[in-house]
Every structure is written in C-alpha cells, then in structure tokens.
Design a binder for these strands. Structure first.
Lengths: 131, 131
DNA sequence: TTTACTAACTTGCAAAATGCAAGTGTGCAA
DNA sequence: TTGCACACTTGCATTTTGCAAGTTAGTAAA
C-alpha cells in the first residue's frame, strides 16, 4: 500500500490496463474461464492474464475452483468484494460513453444510469446471480 | 484505442497507477501546480508526473496555463471531462472504505454516498467551483 | 494403454515503461 | 548579474509487459 488514500488503495488492486478488463468480462460478458478471458478483443497475453488472475484472487476480488465437468479447467467468479466494483464500472462506462461516440454501449444506458443508477447496478447483479 | 469497449476506453486514459492520483489531487486536495502534485505522499517521480500531465492534457481531462503571478509556474485545472470523473472517484473511495479500515476517508462519507450520492458529487463540484 | 487433444499455465527473451539522480532553461527578485 | 525557484528533460538501471514457444495435467477415442 502506497498511502492511506482510498484512491491509491483501489489503484493498488486494479490500477493497470488489464485487471478491470478481466472484471468486465466476469460482470458483463458472462465469462469464467482462462481461455474466455484470453479471447477478449483487447488480446491479453497469457502470462499477464495468469498473473492478473492470481493477483485478483489474492486480493479477494475473485475466487476460483476446479471446474467439475472438466478438471483441467478452472472456473473464476467474483466475490462480494468483486461484485461491489460494479458501480465503479458503471461510472466508467457512463463517462466513456459521454465523451466518445461509437463505443459498445447500449443505446439507453446513459439515460438509465441518469434516471436510476441503483436499478442499473441491481439489474447487473441479479443477472449475474442467475448464472 | 484497444477496442470499442467503454471500460477499455477509460483505461486508455487513466489505467495506470498515477493518473487518477493527479486527478484526486485536483479534485480533493485543491492542488494546481507541478510541485504540489510531486509532494503527494505516494511520491511520483518528476518525469512520470510530467508525462502524465501531458497525457491528461492531450486527452482533454485537464488544461493548463501559465500562472500569471509567477510565470515559471503552470497552473493545472480540470476540464468538464475531468470533472465528470468525480463519480468514478467517489465509487472508488466508497469501495476502498468498505473493504479496508484505516483509510483517510471522512467518517460519514459512506453513509452520505449511500444516502444521496448525487449530493456528494454536487458538493465536491461546488467546492471546486469556488476556487 | 497409447495417442491426440485441450486448458491452464510457465519460461525465455526482447521491448517498453518506470524510478531515480542529475541536469537544463526560464522567469523573477535582490 | 547573481542566485533561486519551478517545470521540466536526460541518462541509466530496474521493473513490467508482450510475444512465442514450451510444459503439465486431465480427457477421450483408438
């Protein structure tokens, strides 16, 4: 930890170009497996992905278990601490959508967030819980 | 830009360990000058600070002008695009405060955010506007 | 039970980013 | 015109990242 600043604390967890993309894949893309993360369009290298998954797990943001149906696979999922990052992601999406056209953001996302941000977060959470 | 994903887009701006700390200093610490950023407790190197200020300015998140009272100084301030990152910072602070005790977060910050997040953001904005 | 296949890493090495110390250039005040 | 403050810049060592090529272990068909 670099200081007692909460922003600095958060950046120690996901202040890089890749960690939040893994979390994005878990939250919005329904991904759970190493290979799925690897196939995301940003193209993360396998060594970086491996180190990020380890760091996120050590940080208590994700957890993993051997996938029962195929024991060579590991299944990753968000912990409560990881799920609580959804509001951060939502604000980042809203900010990006406001300042850059053409991003992959659903049409009425901005108005939904402006109108009832809590409901947007709750909807994302409940969709995840179904899986 | 690595992809059309809004999270990825945002990370291209501030997906590192330093950019958001500069923005934090601008938003919460009332800092405006190179030396002030440099003196923050995390200890940013001058070359990194210089490159981050340039990148943030090129991105339209901050702007600078020669400080009239002392022309060797440059004064940095947030643009509208930068000010719109306040909600992201607020969510990050709330997340950190929830999961780590002892951080420098005001006592009732969490309850204020839970109770009326918009008001918290508006209060930060209006305090900044006074300067 | 051998062979092939798949998934999740690991390793080696080159390239890029970062950290640190020591400069440089410009304005200002004595 | 000397000294100083401030905002950078430079050089170099260290660290992190990116890429390609392994390695290990479970699975499934021959």
């Amino acid at each position: 930890m670099r200081s007692d600043c909460p922003i600095s604390y958060a950046l120690d967890f996901f202040g890089d170009k890749w960690s939040l993309l893994v979390i994005r894949d878990l939250v919005f893309e329904g991904k759970s497996f190493f290979k799925e993360f690897q196939q995301s369009k940003e193209g993360i290298a396998t060594n970086i992905l491996s180190s990020r998954l380890k760091k996120l797990e050590a940080s208590g943001i994700i957890e993993s278990r051997v996938y029962p149906q195929l024991k060579t696979k590991k299944e990753y999922k968000l912990t409560a601490k990881g799920l609580d990052l959804i509001p951060v992601l939502v604000e980042m999406i809203a900010w990006s959508a406001k300042y850059q056209e053409g991003l992959a953001v659903k049409d009425n996302f901005l108005s939904k967030v402006a109108n009832d941000r809590e409901a947007v977060v709750a909807a994302i959470r409940s969709k995840l819980a179904d899986q």
